[in-house]
Design a protein around this nucleic acid. Structure first.
Length: 691
DNA sequence: GCATGAAGGACCC
DNA sequence: AACCAGGGTCCTTCAGTT
């Protein structure tokens, strides 16, 4: 261990011996949702109470350990930076490279779309309030064990979601707790989403209480209706505000729940904006490049969706506190291989503005887990696994999925998480038996264990609602899914097939108009760019172009399985697909699937006669060629904002609402490493910013 | 060299 | 006197396979 590491240990660990709690621990214990509004008590006072309350607990110890490790990691990061600098890395060159990135990003900046992020206020809490008016005006929390949400009255005391009840009570002794009633949340969620859909049928739901809307089309139509021609930016601004106000009012009228909203030219910004005037209000960011830059310049990086506690600390150590710092420190970030491009995109406020409904096909896994009071007796643990397996099977059945890999997850008494997984080469996990058998085996293997959590999750799903088994090899969905009573989210989305083009797609040549801007952007830091020409950036000449074009490809369909493919699909590719479709295995598979539930291997590895799907080469080919334009996109592989992550739907009604974001642009290894020349790519705590 | 699996994490709501 | 959810997604690292 280097001396630096030792000192990191020392400083991070100092809290354990003395009564002082380190700063980073205070912050860490403060929890993830620190950025929430509505606090009364002084934040640092609150943080102290929180940390103090759980000090000495196993949880706390575990957090402290993590904190320590992070500290070391950060030291290493800094070490590395210093070393490279000493070795004489050409920072200037890196800076220029970043400027090229910036140029590209700027050239693709798109202010033509009106994106709205709508976010229900204290959703669970407010639903409970409707059900029980005696909660009106009092501090209460929803959940058991951990608060899933807190009323605004409670928040004033520093009580926040994700906080354990006993800590919350320390902050607010008279806090009242009500158990969560997920079914009702689901119902209200459905109603609200319905309202949103009136304004954007392709609305992207993000969890139960949030959604992204693209109002561009709605606005256009409205203007056509009232015969408004060219409109001043000011008029547009007002129109946007008014429409969003209408949306919120409608929600309130329909459900009695209040909504907040953010209006901006892209998802990341809209999301951040929805928080600004939080309860029951909205915030609109002017749709000009300058306004966006002004906004982001001072924006704490933590506000960027995808930047969590860890990334925040890493960046902070590098002197990056605000988005503005990202630009200033770009060379260093680049040097450390720290996902600069994504950061730059976020820093410039030029992230994805593509809003598309989540599709069932996008789901990647289904899981089920349980937390309980520390247990170590074999029988007890086994019973829990059985129980979880049972429930998982039910869920799987209800949702109509099977999966190839199963993983067991457990948390030991000291809050350490572990997973074990197994992938079936042939069969699929489907029956309770197959799941339980492996799960128990995996558990027993590691048995002398004191646990507090056990869970199971199935990955590599196959959608039983789909005709063939080939689907997993194509990204395409389209027609396939019929609506099912229990997934209210179903409608709408289906016909935009898997092609995931982001806004990046067609911009290339259409951008002449903005060249001027771009030019400026390259010379020097955009933030210093005094003369920003806001007007030109608001021009709407290509308004909504890519949106329509990328989502409404005409389709070609396979004569065998009638699956549809984008018109851009070449004959060759189509043939490849048809080959697969015609393969014997496939036919067998299709017919066997009809007749009986054979597929799930009842035992772990051994299997039924299910040959894997289609010929390997065919699969490979098709997977690469047919579905996406990924290859083409590689070049544009900037951040597709992390913004829209998925959220599960706990409700028994199982509205599957998978991710909103399209999959796509894998992260651009090329440019990242090529420029660097560093081998041991330092972990890029940022990788997740992918989209 | 590349695709896959397994295990571990970061993050989100 | 005790003791921090549960549903997901994506990324990374390290092997071992093909």
């Amino acid at each position: 261990m280097s001396s630096k590491e030792q000192s990191a240990m020392a400083s991070a660990g100092s809290s354990s011996s003395s009564t002082e709690i380190s700063d980073s621990m205070l912050r860490r214990m403060a929890g993830q949702s620190v950025n929430k509004a509505g606090l009364k008590k002084d934040q640092s006072e609150i943080n102290k109470i929180i940390a103090e309350a759980s000090k000495g607990s196993k949880f706390y110890e575990n957090e402290r350990e993590k904190d320590e490790k992070l500290g070391i990691q950060i030291m290493k990061l800094l070490d590395k930076r210093d070393r490279l600098l000493k070795e004489g890395v050409d920072l200037r060159r890196l800076e220029r490279e970043c400027d090229t990135f910036i140029q590209r990003i700027e050239s693709q900046r798109d202010l033509s779309q009106t994106i709205v992020h709508v976010d229900m206020d204290a959703f669970y809490a407010n639903v409970e309030l409707l059900a029980d008016p005696t909660l009106e005006g009092i501090a209460f929390g929803v959940g058991t064990g951990v608060l899933t949400t807190a009323s605004y009255e409670a928040r004033a005391y520093g009580v926040r979601s994700g906080m354990p009840v006993f800590v919350a009570k320390k902050l607010c002794p008279h806090l009242r707790m009500v158990p969560a009633t997920f079914n009702s949340y689901g119902e209200y969620s459905g109603k609200v989403m319905e309202v949103f859909r009136r304004f954007d049928p392709n609305m992207a739901k993000v969890g139960m209480d949030e959604a992204f809307l693209n109002l561009t089309t709605y606005i256009q139509e409205e203007r056509e209706k009232d015969g408004t021609g060219q409109e001043s930016e000011n008029a547009m601004h007002k129109r946007r505000e008014r429409i969003v106000r209408t949306i919120r009012e409608t929600c309130k009228k329909v459900t009695g729940l209040t909504v907040s909203a953010g209006i901006a030219p892209n998802k990341m910004l809209a999301k951040i904006c929805s928080d600004i005037n939080k309860p029951n209000n909205q915030y609109i960011l002017p749709f000009t490049r300058q306004a966006v830059l002004d906004f982001t310049r001072t924006l704490p990086i933590r506000k960027i969706p995808g930047i969590g506690r860890v990334s925040e600390r890493c960046l902070e150590a590098l002197g990056v506190i605000t988005c503005g710092d990202i630009i200033t420190k770009r060379a260093e970030l680049h040097l450390l291989n720290y996902g600069v491009i994504e950061l730059l995109k976020a820093g410039l406020g030029a992230t994805s503005n593509v809003v598309e409904a989540g599709r069932r096909e996008d789901r990647k896994s289904v899981g089920c887990e349980r937390t309980f009071r520390e247990k170590s007796k074999r029988e007890e643990l086994i019973a829990i696994v059985e129980d979880v397996a049972e429930e998982l099977t039910e869920t799987l059945q209800k949702l109509e999925y099977t999966g190839k890999t199963l993983s067991l997850k457990y948390k030991t008494h000291d809050f350490k998480l572990h997973t074990k997984s197994h992938t079936l080469q042939h069969g699929e996990y489907k029956t309770r038996d197959s799941i339980q058998t492996w799960a128990l085996k995996a558990l027993e293997e590691s048995l002398p264990l004191k646990l507090r959590l056990l869970g199971l999750r199935v990955n590599q799903l196959r959608d039983l609602r789909k005709k063939g088994g080939l689907e997993q090899y194509f990204t395409n969905p389209s027609h396939s899914r019929k609506l099912h009573e229990d997934d209210e989210e179903a409608e709408g989305a289906d016909f935009n097939n898997a092609i995931i083009l982001d806004s990046d797609e067609d911009l290339e040549d259409s951008e002449a108009a903005e060249t001027e801007q771009v030019e400026r952007a390259i010379n020097g830091s955009p933030f210093n760019d005094a003369i920003t020409n806001a007007a030109s950036s608001t021009a709407v000449p290509f308004a909504s172009k890519q949106e329509t074009e990328t989502t409404h490809h005409p389709m070609i369909s396979c004569p065998i399985c009638s699956r549809t493919f984008p018109s851009s699909t070449t004959n060759q590719d189509l043939n490849a697909h048809i080959d697969v479709c015609l393969s014997k295995d496939t036919i067998q598979q299709l017919s066997s699937r009809r007749s009986s539930p054979i597929l799930g291997s009842s035992e772990s590895v051994s299997s039924t006669g299910e040959k894997s799907v289609g010929s390997k080469s065919a699969n490979k080919r098709s997977r690469r060629d047919i579905p996406t334009n990924k290859e083409d996109e590689e070049d544009y592989d900037f951040l597709r904002p992390p913004t829209s992550r998925n959220h599960s739907t706990t409700s028994s009604s199982a509205s599957v609402s998978p991710t909103v974001t399209s999959s796509g642009g894998s992260s651009n290894k090329k440019s990242k490493n090529v420029l660097m020349g560093t081998k041991e790519a330092p972990r890029n705590p940022f990788a997740f910013m992918k989209r």
